[in-house]
Design a protein around this nucleic acid. Structure first.
Length: 216
DNA sequence: TAATTGCCGCAGACACTAAG
DNA sequence: CTTAGTGTCTGCGGCAATTA
C-alpha cells in the first residue's frame, strides 16, 4: 500500500538533509544545491517536523547527526540512489528492467548460466540479478521476483510451477549397503519454480530464459 | 561565522461556482 | 456533465535581521 502523500517527505528536503549529513554544514549543502542557507535550514526543519524526530543536533554553530539521523540518512541515500538510477533508466531505456532471481547454486551453474548468454543477446535491456538461496524465504521481505528451489509446495502465499522432474540415485560405500535408507523417499524430490505473487511483468523474461512449465 | 527566523513573493494545487 | 474562471491555501525559496 502506497503511503498517503502527507506522510511522504519532499525530495528536496531529503536532498537537503543528505547533503547536510554528508558535508556537515547547511552552508556547504546550500552551495552544492544552488540554494541559500536559509532554504536548507527550512528544509531540515520541515523534514524534522514532518517526521517528529530530531535528525540533527544543534551544537552551537554545528549541525551534528543524531542517532536517528545517522540511521535515517543511510536509508535516504539508498532511496535517492535508486530514484536516480530509475530516472536515468526511464530516460534512456523506458522498457528496461531487472529480473531478480533466487536460485540454487548447482541449478544456476549447470542449467541457468548456459542460457544467460542467449538471453542477454535477445534482451539486452533486461538485467538479470542472480542470488543463491538455499532455504525458503519471504518474498514480502526480499527483492526477488522469483525463486527456483527443490522441495514441496510448502511456501505460503506464492504460486508454483513444476520446472522438471528429477530422480536422485543414492550412492554409498559397499560396507554401508544394508543400512536402512530411512529418508530415501524425501530425497526423491522435484525442482519447483516458486513465483512471487506480485505482478511485475517479469513472466515474459522467465519464458525467454527457458524457465517455463514445459522446459525444453 | 554559521544557523535560525520573520517577512515577503511566486507558483502550483485545490475547491467552488457559473456558463455552455 | 464538462469546462473555464476565480479565490484560497500551501509549499518553497530569497532577503535581512537576529542569535549563539
Amino acid at each position: 500500500m502506497i503511503a498517503p502523500r502527507r506522510f511522504l517527505p519532499s525530495v528536496n528536503s531529503l536532498l537537503a538533509f543528505e547533503a547536510v549529513a554528508r558535508l556537515g554544514s547547511a552552508t556547504q549543502a546550500a552551495r552544492e544545491l544552488s540554494l541559500t542557507q536559509s532554504a536548507i535550514s527550512r528544509q531540515l526543519k520541515t523534514l524534522e517536523d514532518q517526521l517528529g524526530v530530531a535528525l540533527l543536533g544543534r551544537q552551537g554553530r554545528q549541525l551534528v547527526l543524531t542517532d536517528a539521523g545517522k540511521s535515517y540518512v543511510v536509508q535516504v541515500r539508498d532511496i535517492l540512489n535508486k530514484l536516480a538510477q530509475a530516472s536515468i533508466s526511464a530516460r534512456t531505456n523506458p522498457t528496461a528492467g531487472a529480473l531478480n532471481l533466487a536460485i540454487l547454486p548447482g541449478f544456476g551453474m549447470h542449467w541457468l548460466a548456459p542460457r544467460l548468454r542467449d538471453f542477454a543477446q535477445t534482451h539486452p535491456e533486461v538485467t538479470v540479478n542472480l542470488s543463491t538461496r538455499l532455504h525458503p524465504f519471504s518474498f514480502q521481505n526480499s527483492p526477488f521476483d522469483a525463486a527456483i528451489h527443490f522441495g514441496k509446495e510448502d511456501w505460503p502465499g506464492v504460486g508454483y510451477l513444476h520446472l522438471m522432474p528429477e530422480t536422485v540415485v543414492p550412492v554409498c560405500a559397499p560396507e554401508l549397503l544394508g543400512a536402512p535408507l530411512e529418508n530415501a523417499a524425501e530425497i526423491l524430490t522435484y525442482p519447483l519454480l516458486h513465483l512471487d505473487t506480485r505482478p511485475r511483468g517479469w513472466s515474459r523474461w522467465l519464458r525467454a530464459l527457458g524457465v517455463t512449465q514445459d522446459p525444453p
